[in-house]
Structure formats: structure tokens, C-alpha cells
């Protein structure tokens, strides 16, 4: 038998455990969540059907729309900065410089720290800086919190995206670059006409990952600002959390917000994937 035939034969056996786990941990909760968004409930076992009223309440809630706008602004800025920095670092670290492996490790390390820890650590750092400079702290202005979150997310995600870009750079066939050099292409034209098109696959993945992670961001937001001041630095996920746990009898509304949130992230990610995918070329 050929290898592919083996794979075909044994595929279900190997996929089954993960598939079961996937159903239990993702599909079932998702289905329950969808159902609960149309109900009024206290714990997940005592739901009463209420129809679409939760969706009406969610979409007329000003704080939800504010947090949507916050998440969008945050995501746009962060996707650009994270990818530009990660791409630049990857370019640097694929050149023949001494210690590239060390630098790669250094830049990747922040990614290994959980979001809550990062949030608290950056809270201390930024509070210290603001206190020394202006005798203020992160809660003083929504701008501080916004910029702080962008810095935090950059620090956390650049390393990971860098690794993907490095893999992309290493996959660009040497002859293509050599041909560009021989043709006398200058740095910028070479970057935009040759390198970036060749890297389009990596760019697709990285923009997708940063986009969805920024839209979904929760723990960094909670630990760094937890919405202060006045819920002005509250992302979508944090708003849903607050609605669910801190408001009274609003669990169903929170669940409806979560479904809207899912649809929103999925649609945005779908169009992003389609847009960047169309730029991909073969060597």
C-alpha cells in the first residue's frame, strides 16, 4: 500500500480522540451558548426561553457599542504595529548577524508569559513611569490605557509573529532574491515587488492571528486597566464578562453579546483572509 492509502485507512483512528475533545470542549458549549442567548437564566441548568429580547437589549446598550469601537480602534493599531515590527525583526534576524539565535529567543520569550501576568507587570511598569513623569497613573486617562494595551500586546505578540515571518523568509527560494539583486533592484523596490509578494502566505497567517487575538483580547485588558477610567478602555470580551457577572439578571444579554461577538470576529476574519489570500503568489 502507498503511504497515502495508509493515511486514509488510519486517519479516523488518529483523529477521533481530538475530534471527541473538540466536540466536548468547543461544539457543545458553543451550542449551549447559542441556546442560552435566547433565554433568561441564572445557572446554565435553569433557562427560560425569552426569544430575541436579549439581542435587542445587547444592541441598544451604549457600553457594548463603546467597547466595540474600542476593540476596533485597538485592533487596527495593533495589527499594523505588531506586523510591521515583527516583519522588520524577522528581516533583521535572517541576515547574517552574530547572535541571531539568541535574539530570536529573547524576542520570543514574552509570548510564553500569560496575559494576566503580563497585564499586572505592565500595570506596575506603566504606573511607575506615569507617576514619575506626571504624578498620575493608568486610570487617569483612557489614552494611557489604550496606549498601554497597544504596547503590551506588541511586546507579547511580536516575538510569535516574528517566528512565523522568519520561517517565511527561509522559504523564499534564494534564486529569486539573487535574480532581483543581479537585475539591480534597490532595497525598497525589492522589498515591495519581490519580498512582500513572496511572503504573502506568512502575512495572511500573521494578520489573521493578530486580528483575531486583538479582537478577542480579554485577560490583558482585565489585568492592565479593567476598563478604567469609567469603562472607557473596555474591549468587547471584558464588556461581556462585566455584563454576565457584575450586572444583575443580565446573563442572557451577556450571552447574546457573546454570540454577536462571535459573528463579528468570524466575519471580519473571513474578509481579511479572503483579501490577503488573493495576494499570495507562487514562486
Amino acid at each position: 500500500m502507498r503511504v497515502s492509502a495508509y493515511i486514509k485507512k488510519w486517519f479516523p483512528a488518529f483523529a477521533l480522540p481530538t475530534f471527541l475533545a473538540f466536540i466536548l470542549a468547543f461544539i457543545v458549549p458553543f451550542g449551549m451558548g447559542l441556546y442560552l442567548s435566547f433565554t433568561k437564566f441564572r445557572t446554565v441548568n435553569d433557562a427560560q426561553w425569552t426569544g430575541v429580547s436579549n439581542y435587542v437589549a445587547a444592541l441598544t446598550d451604549g457600553s457594548f457599542l463603546n467597547s466595540l469601537w474600542f476593540s476596533v480602534r485597538f485592533t487596527v493599531i495593533s495589527v499594523i504595529t505588531v506586523n510591521v515590527f515583527a516583519f522588520a525583526l524577522a528581516m533583521l534576524l535572517t541576515k547574517a548577524i552574530r547572535g541571531t539565535n539568541l535574539f530570536r529567543a529573547v524576542f520570543f520569550l514574552p509570548n510564553l508569559i500569560g496575559g494576566i501576568v503580563l497585564g499586572y507587570v505592565w500595570n506596575l511598569i506603566l504606573t511607575g513611569i506615569l507617576k514619575a513623569l506626571f504624578a498620575q497613573d493608568l486610570t487617569y486617562s483612557a489614552t494611557y490605557g489604550f496606549v498601554g494595551l497597544v504596547i503590551l500586546v506588541n511586546w507579547q505578540m511580536i516575538g510569535y509573529m516574528m517566528v512565523i515571518y522568519i520561517a517565511g523568509f527561509q522559504n523564499i527560494p534564494g534564486d529569486v532574491m539573487e535574480a532581483a539583486d543581479i537585475d539591480g533592484a534597490a532595497f525598497w523596490p525589492k522589498l515591495f515587488r519581490v519580498t512582500i509578494p513572496m511572503m504573502a502566505g506568512s502575512i495572511t497567517i500573521c494578520t489573521f492571528l493578530t486580528l483575531s487575538n486583538c479582537l478577542k483580547m480579554f485577560d490583558q485588558n482585565l489585568a492592565l486597566t479593567s476598563g478604567a477610567p469609567n469603562n472607557e478602555t473596555e474591549g468587547l470580551a471584558l464588556n461581556i464578562y462585566r455584563t454576565f457577572y457584575l450586572l444583575r439578571n443580565q446573563q442572557g444579554v451577556a450571552q447574546a453579546k457573546a454570540v454577536i461577538f462571535f459573528v463579528f470576529v468570524a466575519v471580519v476574519a473571513f474578509f481579511q483572509l479572503r483579501a490577503t489570500r488573493s495576494q499570495e503568489v507562487d514562486a
Partner: peptide, 16 residues
């Protein structure tokens, strides 16, 4: 994987 992780984690946030 990443999308479904997001979907599940938001419904998780709801369901306790």
C-alpha cells in the same frame, strides 16, 4: 483552530 477557540471561549465565558 483559532477561530473556533475564540468562539468556544466566548461561549465559555457565558456558561461559567
Amino acid at each position: 483552530a483559532s477561530l473556533l477557540l475564540g468562539a468556544a471561549s466566548c461561549s465559555n465565558g457565558g456558561g461559567g
